[in-house]
Design a protein around this nucleic acid. Sequence first.
DNA 1: AGCACA
Length: 447
Amino acid sequence: MASVSSQPQFRYTQPPSKVLHLRNLPWECTEEELIDLGKPFGKVVNTKCNVGANRNQAFIEFADLNQAIAMISYYASSSEPAQVRGKTVYLQYSNRQEIVNNKTTADVAGNVLLVTIEGQDARLVSIDVLHLDHVKGIISNGSLVHREKENMYFQLLDLCIKLLPLRRQLDFRYLLSENISPCTLRITYSAHTDLSVKFQSHRSRDYTNPYLPVAPSAIDGSGQFSLGLDGKKLEPESNVLLASIENMQYAVTLDVLHMVFSAFGPVQKIAMFDKNGGLQALIQYPDVQTAVLAKGTLEGHCIYDGGFCKLHLSYSRHTDLSIKVNNDRSRDYTIPNPAMVNPQPSTLGQQPVQAMGGPAAHQYNGAPYASGLQQPTMLPQPSGGWTSTVPAVAQQSMPVQMSNHHPYIPPSSMPQTNPGMMRMPGQGGVPPDAAGGAMPPYRSNQM
DNA sequence: AGCACA
């Protein structure tokens, strides 16, 4: 009773073809590997790899049908399955008689690109990475030519691909968070000329139409976009970061934290507290994006050289810290500078900042850090060019310059260590008047 | 793990 079945027996009823269909191939299987696999049985005249949704299928076309049959029969009776890189691959005749190499779409220039994000953590890459502003930011931060034209998108992305593996040195941490392994972008042209985007989501955006409805699946509880794809919940992002400081050999003061975290955008509030015998702090930014940037850049890095004061960052569930009083452990930088509002505040017991005294109390008076500077009117917009949104204060208070013993040093007298290590978005250098100093140098590499 | 762009 061999062939009474009316069921379509896909596996065994394929008519022979000189084209073989392979599946279960290893990641990024190359044409060479396919040729090597088929070579013992005949002349491989064409191949097509990275086929299918998972890109783990391929086709091999032999010059002659008998060669394809030879390969199929060999592995049908072999005790050793066909393998590529030690991975068993499954062979069958293709249901087509020749490989059609669709050279058309990928090679014909168009206004829509097909971008394939590849890599271990490809699914964690945010859609915003693909936005032109980001690409421009990368290019300019990498000290390469900054090109404006939209039609240079392809070339910019192409450069982006080449530079991506170097992202550590070239500030690609602004592209991908630090805990995402390197990804590459494979880019071809699409045959599409206009994409129909039905709603804004974590997987689709129409940047030309801000009034599109937002897909509920793309919004988390706090109304922010979440980066998780395919419904996978990531740690919910927040505009408030929880920092814990490990190996605290040197004093980490409110001002040191303010300086470090201001490098990414305006810091609204900081609250420090002791927990589990260590120091923790909540740092509030006006928006999630800035917090993401700061976390991605600073996570695991040490404030001081020698592995001292290592930062561990997570997203807090808070969205707005309630700072009851400004002192050396907590501060609300959004309130008007009391020194300006009330020149004689010390008569009022509860007056913030000045009334509390302490080493931190006077430090912001007259300095460019005056808290009135960070009002949320100059916030980065979600899809705007973040390269231009880092406030001047951040550019002058880069984490490379900080002190351990005297937490506040005016920017004009800050020591300089290793210029360029912490190049910030939108600017490529160090404060012009940075001076040398004798303190643990900031180390941007994790230890 | 099942046929070439979801």
